[in-house]
């Protein structure tokens, strides 16, 4: 909505040609409109804040979600055990997932059709499955299907998380490899490097810079997915954040533990998203000297 340009300043000042000033809106300048629009937006915010403050039952809210004594009672185990377990599960799952993903990405780019197909099917399959289903199958399906074949809980969680993450990461890595200009491989080959040496010394290091930011994002998603480990059940020492949170909620008959574990997840994920932004800034726009 702008004032008609044809009339020039005369139209904007409302003093000019009658045709252009037929509607009262045309009398307002763009700056005035923007000011009013901002005013309305602030107004909405204030109204919402006031309504919440008045309507909310603060004592009940604090009593339900903000009991400091319950929060304090969760320390130090929530940090030393649950947070640590979440980090360990996520880290192991990520490392295994990354290894699988690199293999899958190379398979997707292989000149052997069968490899391309296997990787394609794997990726489409696991990308389409909810993480919960993968955990259920790994935790409860496999022990039934293969009686006596019982893996340690940590390994089950690690494999489940790796399966969930590897499909996504494989596609990210494949895109990163393909983003490295073809001339890099040609230069490497013309210097006598074999195709695999060119891949590992020239292409993959450069692809890594491209895919580091999205991989960090995947690590954040995986941190959250690790909460699904709670459905497998565990010993007291084997609980990660979500499992501990649930147990504490039952114990205390209060929802404060939710807030505590939410904060614990943020302790992990906020630095990661900061890292992702830093990496993106560092590598995203950098002129790598590659054409």
């Amino acid at each position: 909505m702008s004032s008609p340009h044809a009339t020039g300043d005369g139209g904007r000042n409302g003093t000019g040609i009658p045709v252009a000033t037929a509607t009262p809106k045309a009398k307002m300048s763009k700056r005035q409109k923007a000011k009013i629009s901002r005013g309305i937006q602030y107004g909405i915010l204030v109204v919402i804040a006031v309504v919440i403050a008045v309507v909310a039952d603060w004592p009940t809210l604090i009593d339900t979600f903000g009991r400091v004594d319950i929060a304090a009672g969760m320390l130090p185990d929530v940090i030393t055990k649950a947070l640590k377990n979440t980090v360990v599960f996520t880290g192991l799952g990520f490392v295994l997932g990354l290894a699988i993903a690199i293999v899958l990405a190379l398979m997707r780019l292989s000149s052997v059709g069968v490899y391309r197909w296997i990787a394609f099917v794997y990726i489409e399959f696991f990308r389409g499955l909810p993480a919960l289903v993968v955990f259920l199958v790994m935790g409860f399906g496999l022990p039934v299907a293969f009686p006596g074949f019982i893996l340690p809980q940590l390994v089950v969680i690690m494999i489940a998380l790796a399966l969930v993450s590897s499909a996504y990461m494989a596609e990210t890595i494949r895109a990163g490899i393909q983003a490295v200009p073809k001339g890099q491989v040609e230069a490497a080959r013309s210097l006598g490097m074999s195709s695999s040496r060119a891949m590992f010394t020239i292409v993959l290091p450069q692809a890594m810079r491209i895919i580091l930011p999205p991989l960090t994002n995947e690590l954040i998603l995986l941190t959250k997915d690790s909460s699904l480990a709670y459905i497998l059940g565990s010993s007291v020492d084997g609980r990660e954040l979500a499992a501990l949170g649930r147990a504490e909620i039952v114990n205390s008959a209060n929802l404060t533990p939710f807030i505590v574990i939410a904060l614990c997840y943020l302790i992990i994920t906020i630095p990661l998203s900061y890292l992702s932004r830093v990496l993106e800034k560092k590598y995203g726009s950098a002129d790598s000297g590659v054409k």
């Binding site: 200009p181 001339g183 890099q184 040609e186 230069a187 490497a188 080959r189 013309s190 210097l191 006598g192 490097m193 074999s194 020239i202 290091p205 450069q206 810079r209 790598s288 000297g289 590659v290 054409k291």
Partner: peptide
Amino acid sequence: IDAARIRIGMVFQSFNLFGH
């Protein structure tokens, strides 16, 4: 072919230096 290419240097239009 890798051994053969060692003896044939090549310079490209777009340089293709290894950026990393």
